[in-house]
């Protein structure tokens, strides 16, 4: 079966105030891929996800989503900037995942309620429906956000450090969900720091340090020489940096 590209990076440069955080990245993510994005702090991993979902405009080059809209992407940002003091229940927060179908005025009918309850139960939070989000633990909150992602039913899912500070059992449950998405041929990109987890669950890895250091089967991408190279490739942010000769 031929595999078509879902996301293509063409000489992509992303950054802040003209300083690149992702620099001249080229490559393709196949439809249905389960790709780990690894690299040292400041390597541009989170920036890359922001560029894919359209919240950050490229400084150069382009991201091609091959026909899907950035709004059809399920995106779980790092430490989601959620106001947990807002008086809203787990059920209502998860129901936001139906936005694409319900929009401004669409009602939430019996079928939708069943779907929401199913998503909550799929992440192991049965009985938590009416709990205010402010009373949840970090792990429970992350499960809630995964339930919302489940409801979004997105073809492309971007996860930015989704398992940070979670216990082993919560991580295992959520990794199972990621595997389920992969089985449904959804394209999943996850920024991760735990190499053991990446080796166990992610067949493909992009190792980056602003540029791609290695991209391919996880075992090869995470080879010791590549990891060493990534550690030394950190291009320091310089206030007086010259204009990039490729961009000029």
């Amino acid at each position: 079966m031929s595999v078509s590209a879902q996301i293509s990076f063409r000489d992509l440069t992303l950054g802040y105030e003209r300083h690149p955080a992702v620099h001249h990245l080229n490559g393709e993510v196949a439809e249905g891929a389960l790709l780990a994005v690894c690299g040292p702090n400041g390597a541009g991993k989170s920036t890359l996800l922001k560029g894919i979902c359209g919240s950050l405009r490229p400084l150069g080059g382009a991201v091609d989503l091959h026909g899907i809209s950035p709004r059809d992407i399920g995106y779980l940002p790092q430490g989601a900037d959620l106001d947990r003091s807002f008086p809203i229940s787990v059920f209502d927060l998860v129901s936001m995942g139906l936005w694409r179908r319900a929009g401004l005025f669409g009602g939430i009918g019996r079928k939708d309620r069943a779907k929401i309850e199913e998503a909550i139960s799929a992440v192991g939070l049965e009985g938590f429906e009416d709990r205010p989000i402010g009373s949840l633990s970090g792990g429970q909150m992350q499960r809630t956000l995964f339930a919302r992602l489940l409801l979004q039913d997105a073809r492309v899912i971007l996860l930015d450090e989704p398992f940070t500070a979670l216990d082993a059992s919560t991580t295992a449950d959520l990794v199972d969900l990621v595997r389920r998405w992969h089985g449904e041929r959804r394209t999943v990109l996850a920024v991760l720091h735990d190499f053991d987890l990446v080796r166990a669950a992610f067949p493909e890895t992009l190792l980056m340090a602003r540029r791609a250091v290695a991209w391919g089967p996880t075992k090869e991408a995470l080879a010791p020489e590549n990891l060493l190279k990534a550690r030394h490739m950190g291009e320091a942010w310089q206030a007086d940096a010259a204009t990039c000769p490729v961009a000029a």
Binding site: S55, R71, I73, A80, D83, F86, I88, M96, W99, L104
Partner: peptide, 22 residues
């Protein structure tokens, strides 16, 4: 009319921005 996006924008503005311009 704006109740739903207003609530979403108050709780999780990043999520709302990722699914809608509202």
């Amino acid at each position: 009319i704006i109740w739903r996006p207003l609530v979403m924008d108050s709780v999780d503005p990043t999520f709302l921005a990722s699914v809608s311009r509202s």
